[in-house]
């Protein structure tokens, strides 16, 4: 400690004018060094994040022969054959349709169920409301694998196996709590006096909710729907267990790693690229609303 003290005091005692030029140069250098570091950290960070995605895209444009024969940084024999396979084979492209269908169903169900629940949590005090709110969240704390067997047994009993509805419903267990949590945050940001003003103006509850309240929390509904989409779109275990062929999701199709000709890297990577695209599009649309969600501390 004492070793550092003199130097720091010494620096302070030097009159600013006599060494100002040197000090300035030093500071300038320090600044550019700092500046470089500031730029390189995010550049490296983004590069490392993007490399796997680049590799995926690059692979999807290579023929299998090039993929297995050696390392090429970009496709030497550029081909769209892999994509052609997917778009021409119903066992591939139907899985996209299946995934989309149950994801959309799940989004609609989750948000529709979560809206009134979130409204109740945000506007009313009732016995055990805080415990119930927390309990809802605990549903998300268990890994999906925990629920695989009960779901499978239950849905078999009701004859729901291999339907889109089964997957949509199963995912609600995870998505409804999340949607309630997100929506509650957005709803609590709307002053209660707005509700009252609407009632004073003569609005009935449904009319107020649809015409005044929903537009106010439109961002929240968007963010909630987005997170439902995210979970439901990437969830593999439950979706695969509850489906056989009719409602088979894309994620399950992609894990079908071996075919008659061995491992079909090209087609699998092309399927991967096509799986990323919907997510990327959705993120693009909700990016501004998500920032708002972050500001509310609910995302």
């Amino acid at each position: 400690m004492s070793a550092y003290e003199p130097s720091s005091h010494g620096e302070q005692r030097i009159p600013a004018s006599s060494h100002s030029e040197a000090a300035l140069g030093q500071r300038e250098r320090a600044k550019t060094g700092h500046f470089r570091l500031k730029i390189f950290v995010p550049i490296f960070y983004i590069l490392f994040l993007l490399i796997p995605i680049y590799w995926l895209i690059s692979l999807s444009f290579k023929p299998n022969q090039e993929i297995v024969s050696g390392l090429t940084l970009w496709p030497q024999n550029f081909t769209l054959d892999n994509y052609r396979v997917i778009f021409n084979d119903p066992s591939w492209y139907e899985t996209y349709y299946n995934s989309m269908l149950y994801v959309v169903m799940n989004m609609v169900i989750s948000v529709a169920v979560a809206l009134p629940a979130a409204y109740a949590f945000s506007r009313y005090r009732f016995l055990g409301d805080k415990h119930l709110f927390f309990w809802l969240l605990t549903n998300r704390m268990a890994p999906p694998a925990v629920f695989v067997l009960p779901f499978f047994q239950l849905y078999s009993a009701f004859g729901l196996i291999d339907t889109h509805f089964a997957v949509a419903l199963a995912h609600c267990l995870f998505n409804v709590p999340l949607a309630v949590w997100i929506l509650e945050g957005f709803m609590s940001g709307v002053p209660k006096e707005i509700d009252e003003t609407a009632y004073i103006d003569g609005y009935s509850f449904p009319r107020f909710f649809g015409k005044i309240f929903m537009p106010l929390i439109a961002s929240g509904i968007g963010v909630a729907a987005f997170f439902c989409f995210m979970f439901s779109w990437v969830e593999l275990l439950i979706a695969r267990t509850l489906t056989v062929t009719d409602a088979k999701p894309i994620a399950a199709a992609m894990t079908r790693t071996s075919s008659a000709t061995g491992l079909d890297y090209g087609v699998l990577t092309a399927a991967g690229v096509l799986t990323i695209i919907p997510g990327a599009i959705v993120i693009w649309f909700v990016r501004n609303h998500i920032a708002k969600g972050f500001a509310l501390g609910r995302v």
């Binding site: 006096e193 707005i194 009252e196 003003t197 009632y199 004073i200 103006d201 003569g202 609005y203 005044i212």
Partner: peptide, 15 residues
């Protein structure tokens, strides 16, 4: 909503 009243709050409440 069945009464004919109007109310203005201290906070500025509009839609």
């Amino acid at each position: 909503r069945r009464r004919n009243v109007a109310m203005v709050y201290q906070q500025f409440i509009n839609y």
